[in-house]
Design a protein around this nucleic acid. Sequence first.
RNA 1: GACCCUAUCGUCCAGAGGUCUAGGACACUCCCCUUUCACGGGAGUAACACGGGUUCGAAUCCCGUUAGGGUCACCA
Length: 572
Amino acid sequence: MRIRQNTTFCWAAEKSAARPRDAPGLGCSTKAASRPGKLRGKVGRRTWAAPLQKTSRRVNSPRLNGSSRCSSPPSAMAPRNGSGSSESAPDRAGSAIGPHFPASHVLSECPFSAASMSSEVRVRFAPSPTGYLHVGGARTALFNWLYARHTGGKFILRIEDTDRARHVDSAVAAILEGLRWLGLDWDEGPGAGTAGALEGSGDYGPYFQSERGAVYERYLSRLRDGGHVYEDPAGAVRFRLPRKPMEFDDLVCGHIAVDRSKTTTPTGEPESDMTIRRPDGSWIFHFVNVVDDAEMRITHVIRGEDHLSNTPKHIELYEALGIAPPQFAHIPLILNRDGSKMSKRDQGAHVSSYIEQGYQPEAVRNYLCLLGWSPKDDREKLPIEEVIRLFEPGKINRKAAHFDLEKCNWLNAQYLAAMSLDEFTQASIPWLEKAGIAYGNAAALSPVLALIKEKIKLIPEVTGWVDYFFTDAFEYNPEAVEKTLRKPGALERLVQLRGAYAQLSTWEATLLETQLKELAAQVGCKPAEYIHPARVAVSGRGVGPSLYHMLEVLGQQRVLARIDRTLAEFAG
RNA sequence: GACCCUAUCGUCCAGAGGUCUAGGACACUCCCCUUUCACGGGAGUAACACGGGUUCGAAUCCCGUUAGGGUCACCA
């Protein structure tokens, strides 16, 4: 099955043609000023705004960013529209491109401009179809999603498959599955909307880079017209790096200043011009990423810190294109517990592993929320609505987080404990079926699950706790046998207990308890001397639920039969 | 190698110059509850990387060192 590229493409082209005023860059250019007031960059805290600290904290420093986001402001700040140029006309770029913009354009970006306050937040998650969703990627998606939901903006999914060769449907599907499992719904992109069609829905498609060739061609010619690119001897298209100092403000990392003229290769030579297109015509990530973010009117790029060092290059591209860059928020990476880099082989690296192991999606999501972010109080288990309410990119931690599966497990147990017996039963059924346990039906299963619900940290564990309820042919645990049944007098006491229980006309936990204790008192030994053998006799193991409740659920007939079987098996 | 980011208990977070003899959670240890295993309750071990500044006062601001991470691709 392949994506319907042609249809999608035409459809998207129509869409954009129908919105001539929404030319790329224009929407973007407003965003610098339109960041919702709640964003708190850490900018003020660490650098130039020190004297303003308290104020900026309260008033929200991002506004300050507008005037200092880029070191070469004239080209960094795109001109506001005004021209009404058409998106489809290649030459429209003429008015928008160019390194020299009147200062008034910059000033018009005044962050306090009321007119710009209304534009909507648009964030995106742009994975490459690698065949699985990495937890790091999942957290990036989560933070984007949280911000979109927090602001009432849009969360967009874009697949960075660069070209057809990289596109594999099953690989895309794995990512969508992971996102859906975590409950991160997207407003635009593959599978968005009620139809769930893979080609996706949204006004800025296609959402597969492999289908956006025409868009890239258009932008390439803009760069060419501006004299920003050239073809090297090998036939690759390269972007002339400006090689000058530049700075920008990152919502998480604060003010970043880097002298790009000093950037070198690992061997110490000056950085070579960035390739944006290979000789075979395929596109390089940096270019298409920037073009798509601009075209899709992304206002905030929330991505992994591994891109922080790439950001100056991206901003240079925006400048060459005459488009104001979005706001950036680089979130720290997730490391293994031991501090090493988390690779796809590491424990817990794939979201699919949580699905397979039966984690509760809300628990995993909750855990991911807490990795680099906190509600600033002592709460750990938080309803997602609460996280959405409190979440702001500026509050994301700057330190890389080490992944701790133990805590994730604990949270999972917290979520299980909060489930009703009904929910717990429904969640257990698929796993019992997978294990081939003949539990009968939900009504028969629930009372059994009620006995062990609180002992479980992960749903699939139920199978090991309840199997003997549904088969009389259970095995005896050797250790338990050794420890209890082999004890002198154990079988005799079992006989006595059987005798007492056989006479009961009602079968109920508290009665079973008093009977057993009376028997123990008569004989003059501890109840435990009866309890342990009884447990092993009816379940085959030394650990389990409360004995009397277990007996009650098992029923008189089965209990007596199992004691008989045990006596027969271990006598003599 | 150059550049960038980071640095509070083993781990995740709180801490925004005095309220810090640094708080919560996971994990760990002990106690209580208890027929087992868990749950739950209580207690405990455990951290401001180091060195200089600034200040009356620094976990908090600045500089340096060290350590970790990242980027420097015709990967994304």
